[in-house]
Design a binder for these strands. Structure first.
Lengths: 406, 406
DNA sequence: GGTTTTTGTTCATAGTCGGATCTATGGTCG
DNA sequence: CGACCATAGATCCGACTATGAACAAAAACC
C-alpha cells in the first residue's frame, strides 16, 4: 500500500503469455532452474517446463549442468544466453563518435572509436557507421541475421517519440533527421534513438556497479553538460524528451558569462569543458583539450585542480536544485571531466551537501562513473535489450521463429 | 519503439485474472458494452460476458438501457458504479484541516472543513477525524461497511514506503507517527498516507480539467510552498519521498531573507504566505491572513497585486529550474495564493518563459488550479481509488466477496 | 412484415493447467 | 559400499476455462 502507480494503460490483455516473464526471472538471476521458477511464479512445474522448452528452443536460454545440489537431484541450471543475439550501438558525439557491437546483456564485444564526428553531417557519418558495424560483425564471425536491435545515442535533445533530433541550432545538418528508417533499411530490427546522456544514464544504472539505484541523477560533464534523470527506476524524459537539460540552468555565482543559448551564467557556460579551457588560458595555462586538463589535475597541478574543483562546485549549484526537487539517492558524474573524479566529486559534494535540505541528502551518494567511454554504448545496448527482451516482445519472437537450432 | 520502460518487476504472474482489466476499460470509458470489450481486448464474447457478470454481481458495474443502437440490437450499457464504495479522505494542514467522503470516482459527497488543525497534535486531531467521518457516513445513510479505503494528505515530507511523517521539526508531535494502524483499527481497509502536495497534484491531474497531462508540475502556494511532480504520467517521490520539496530551492533575487530551514533566499522565505504578509505590513498594509490579501488583489489593490505578482516571479525563478530539468507540458498553480490566479500566473509566466530554453517551453502551459479547496481530498480519493481498483485488487475483491446484491 | 445487423447467451469442444505419479540423480548414513 | 532419502524434472490424467458456432433478442432498414 501507500504507493501510487498512476498510469495503468488499459490496452490489450496479456492472454496467457508467460514465457517472456520466465525469461526475465532467468535473466535477472531471480530463478536459476525450473523448480525455482515454479516456486517463484506459482505456476506448476509442468507449465514451467513447457515454457522453458520454448525459451531453449528459441535459443534464448541454455541449460548447464554445474549442479550445486542441495540434497536431492541437482537442478539443471538455466542461463540466459546473452550471445544469442547482437545489438548494434553507437554513441555519436560532436567531437568523437563510437560504434560497437554488444551482446544482449549490454556487454561490449567490439568497440571502435570513430574518426568522423557528427559535424561531418549524417551523409558522411551514417555510411561510416553502417560499414563499421558490418566490419565488426565480420570480425566476430557473426552476420546481420544475428542482429536483434540497434541503439543510437545523439547529443542534444531527441524527440524520442519520433526518434528525431530536435531542431537545435548546434545540430546543423542533423536537425530533424529521422535515423530509424535509414538504419532499418539495412538492419530490419527495432531501432532506438535517444539523447546521449539518457543513454549513458541507463548504462550507469545497469552496469555502473552501484547497485540499481531507483532515483539517480547522472551528469555528463564534457564540452557540454547534461543530465539523465532516473526516478522510481524509470528514465524521465519530459514532454518533448528535453528532461535533464541541466546545461542551461543558471548558476548563482556564474559571473555573468554568456552562454551559446542566449542566457548568461548557464551551467554549461561556467562549468563546461570550453569554459575550463578558457579559464586555464586566462591563468596562463595553455591546455590542449579536456583530456590534458584532466591528466594535469590527476597529476596534482594546482591550476588544473582548482579549475576542476571549481567546476564541481558550480555543478553542485545546479545539482542542489535537482536534489531538492527530485530527492535522488545517487548522483553519478560521468563524461570526460569525470576522469578527474576526486576533485570533481569533492567540488560537487561541497556545494550539494551545503545547499540541500537535510532530508534530501540523508541517503545521497555522490559518485564518479567507472564506465568511462563505454557508458554510452552499453547504455544503448541495455535500452534496446530491455525493449527486445520485454515479455511481450519475447512472446512474439518465440511465436515468430519456431525452433532455431543453437 | 523508442521508449524505455526500465523497471519490469519480475514477480508473480497474472494467472488468468482479467475481470480487473475489464473494469478498467469500463471505468475509463474505453469500452461501454460487452461487445466493445471483446473487440478491444481480443477476448471472446462469452468470456467477456462471464467476467462482466462477476463485476455486476460484485456491484462494481451496473447495466443501463440507454441504447444508442447502431443498426442492430442495442447494446447494454455498462457503467462503473462509483457509488458502490466510499473512500474516506482528509487533507490535514497546519492551519486548516478537512475531512470528506468521496465516491470511487473521487467525487466529493460530503466535505467538512475542520476546526482542529494539526498543531493540536494527533491525539486531538485523530478522534475528530474519526468522529467526523462517522457523522458524514451517517448523513449519507451509509455505514462503515461501505468504506473501501482511506486516504490522508499530510503537510511536510512523508516517507511513503512507511507511511509516516518524516521527522521535520515543524511537525512537532506528528513526527514519526504511523497513521495507518491507528486508522485501520477503526476502518479495516487500505490506508494511504502521502504528502499533501502530492495528493493535490494527483487531484489536479485527474480532476483538474486540463486533460491528463503526462508531465505536470503542480505547485501549492500557501503559507508553505511545495510541488508535486508528475513525469511520464507517474508521480515522482524520490528516494525518501522528498521529491517536489521546491520550497527550499534558493532564488536568485531573494534579497538574503532567512528561511526557517537555515538557508537564505529559499523560495518559501521569499514567496510564501508569511513573507507576503510581512512585506504587506512593511508597506503599511496590515492584512489579516492570506485570504484577505488574495481578495484585495482580486479587487485590484495595487500593493496586493504587486505582492502577488512578485511572488509569482520568484516562484517562476524556481520553476524555471524545474522546467529546464523536467520539461513538463503543464504547470498548475494551486494553494491559497492561487485564488489570485491572474496575477500569480502572470508573474510565473513572465520569468519562466524568459529563463527557460525554447525547447523546454515550446509546449508549456501555465495554469491556475480550479479545484480550490477540493484538490487535496479529491486527490486522496483518486489515489486510493487507483489502488483499490487496480486489476489485481479488484480480482481479489471479487474472489473474496461472492455475490452482493445491489 | 421480412430482412439485416448487431448484441448477448447457450452449448459442445478443444486446449491448457495443475496435481499426482514416476524417473533420475546425487547426498547421507549406517 | 549399499540402502535410503531428498530434490529436480518428465509424464499422465482429470478439471477447468476459453472459445467458436449456433441461437435468441432487439432494433433499424427496406
Amino acid at each position: 500500500m501507500i504507493q501510487c502507480g498512476m498510469p495503468r494503460t488499459p490496452g490489450r490483455l496479456s492472454s496467457t503469455a508467460t514465457s517472456g516473464h520466465i525469461l526475465e526471472l532467468i535473466r535477472t538471476g531471480t530463478a536459476t532452474n525450473r523448480s525455482e521458477i515454479a516456486r517463484t511464479t506459482g505456476l506448476s512445474r509442468p507449465s514451467v517446463a513447457l515454457r522453458v522448452a520454448e525459451l531453449v528452443d528459441g535459443g534464448l536460454v541454455v541449460e548447464r549442468n554445474g549442479a550445486p545440489s542441495s540434497g536431492g537431484r541437482p537442478p539443471t541450471l538455466l542461463e540466459f544466453d546473452a550471445s544469442s543475439g547482437l545489438i548494434l550501438t553507437s554513441a555519436l558525439g560532436m567531437a568523437r563518435s563510437q560504434a560497437a557491437v554488444c551482446d544482449l546483456d549490454g556487454e561490449v564485444l567490439v568497440r571502435t572509436p570513430g574518426s568522423p564526428d557528427m559535424e561531418s553531417g549524417p551523409d558522411r557519418t551514417l555510411p561510416w557507421l553502417l560499414e563499421t558495424w558490418n566490419e565488426q560483425l565480420a570480425s566476430l564471425g557473426r552476420g546481420a541475421g544475428d542482429v536483434r536491435g540497434v541503439g543510437i545515442g545523439l547529443p542534444g535533445t531527441v524527440e524520442y517519440h519520433t526518434g528525431r533530433a530536435a531542431d537545435r541550432p548546434f545540430l546543423g545538418t542533423w536537425a530533424g533527421v529521422a535515423l530509424e528508417p535509414l538504419i532499418a533499411e539495412h538492419f530490419p530490427v527495432p531501432v532506438t534513438v535517444d539523447n546521449d546522456v539518457n543513454v549513458m544514464a541507463v548504462g550507469e544504472l545497469l552496469h555502473g556497479g552501484h547497485g540499481r539505484p531507483a532515483d539517480m541523477v547522472f551528469v555528463k560533464v564534457s564540452t557540454g553538460v547534461g543530465a539523465g534523470l532516473v526516478s522510481g527506476g524509470r528514465l524521465l524524459r519530459g514532454s518533448l524528451g528535453a528532461a535533464g537539460e541541466i546545461g542551461h540552468i543558471p548558476v548563482r555565482e556564474g559571473g555573468g558569462l554568456p552562454c551559446r543559448c542566449g542566457n548568461t551564467d548557464c551551467l554549461e557556460a561556467v562549468a563546461g569543458g570550453r569554459a575550463l579551457l578558457n579559464e586555464a588560458a586566462a591563468r596562463g595555462k595553455e591546455v590542449d583539450g579536456l583530456k590534458e586538463l584532466v591528466s594535469l589535475a590527476l597529476d596534482g597541478d594546482p591550476v588544473a585542480v582548482t579549475l576542476v574543483r571549481g567546476a564541481g562546485r558550480r555543478l553542485g549549484e545546479a545539482l542542489a536544485g535537482a536534489v531538492n526537487l527530485l530527492n535522488p539517492d545517487t548522483i553519478v558524474l560521468g563524461g570526460d571531466l569525470s576522469e578527474a573524479y576526486d576533485h570533481l566529486v569533492a567540488g560537487v559534494r561541497e556545494v550539494v551537501f551545503q545547499q540541500c535540505t537535510a532530508l534530501a541528502t540523508r541517503q545521497l551518494r555522490v559518485l564518479a562513473s567507472s564506465l568511462w567511454d563505454e557508458a554510452g554504448v552499453r547504455g544503448c545496448a541495455s535500452m534496446v535489450a530491455e525493449e527486445i527482451l520485454s515479455p511481450e516482445a519475447v512472446n512474439i519472437f518465440l511465436a515468430g521463429a519456431p525452433s532455431q537450432d543453437t
